[in-house]
Amino acid sequence: MGGYAIEVEGLVKRFGRVYALRGLSFRVPRGETYGLLGPNGAGKTTTIRAIAGALRPTRGRVSVLGLDPSREPLRVKALVGVVPELPSLFPELTVRENLLFIARVYGIPSGEAERRMRELLEFMGLEAVASRRYGQLSKGLKRRADIAAALLHDPEVVLLDEPTGGLDVVAASRLRERLAALRRSGKTILLSTHNIGEAAELSDRLLVIYRGAKLVEGTPSMLRRALSARRITVYYRAGGSEVEASRLEEALQEALASYDPSGLRVAPGSVSVTVKRALDALWAIRETLESLGLKVEDVEVLPPSWEDVLLHHIEEAEEGGRTCRCGVGGSSAW
């Protein structure tokens, strides 16, 4: 059966006076890995909880494998595996005891549970620590155990809430290898992260959310192409005269106004900015620097990094106030 494993339509969630989600809509095709990308507080965890049947939407509709999670939370929870944002197994129990407990809760017969457990311990590289208490494991190993626990009942849909959050680069990169392998297994995966590189590397499609609303959606390469911008860095030398950074920044903002600038950084000896029509913008930057008595030494023009793409969209949204207006009504501006 094809179609969508997860459908979210006009999802609004209000906590007291705070709107955590303001009319979010997206669909995840079966078997795909879908990246949910956004900075802290964007609404990623709230979205995952609503999909997992652990949150009642204020408004809007959620459907998981054809079921409404707030109406049939137990059925949805049985089909979905969740890796919560923070380590969440029982610290007093060993990894093995944790998995056996979870198997009992999901009613997995003991023979099958043993088999699944062995497979998953191997898959997540946990065999050596299976008899250690979860509470004593390193953060990276805890995350792997969390993922093994979420996969134990062989769920069709897996929701991962910032799985690499708080890990050092080595642990994070090892975990991403496992996640890439999981992706190949054909499960439907929703991966929340604030790391744009990770989202791009691991997802078939991704959705950037900000302040509870959709900023932009697409495949990783579409997203990058969507921005014809370039990241320009100009290295300069002070030709005798000292110029205050704030004055230089002001002058550059003015000169670049028509080039749609974002992420302007003024450092001693260099300025960098993401702009459209890079060649013309470069002339404008050079003129500005020289008018202030600064001399251009070198120039670098690169495609934007993922961070630039994200920042660009966020800045644009903030300037236009779009995330605020698109708010509760349902359809978002993008």
Binding site: A78, F90, R104, V105, I108, H153
Partner: peptide, 23 residues
């Protein structure tokens, strides 16, 4: 896979785990 076994099984599993963890 759907959840097999009844509520009683889940209740007992949680109860035994609690005793082991917290006594």
């Amino acid at each position: 896979m759907s959840v097999r076994g009844g509520g009683l099984q889940r209740v007992v599993a949680i109860f035994i785990k609690d005793l082991k963890s917290y006594y």
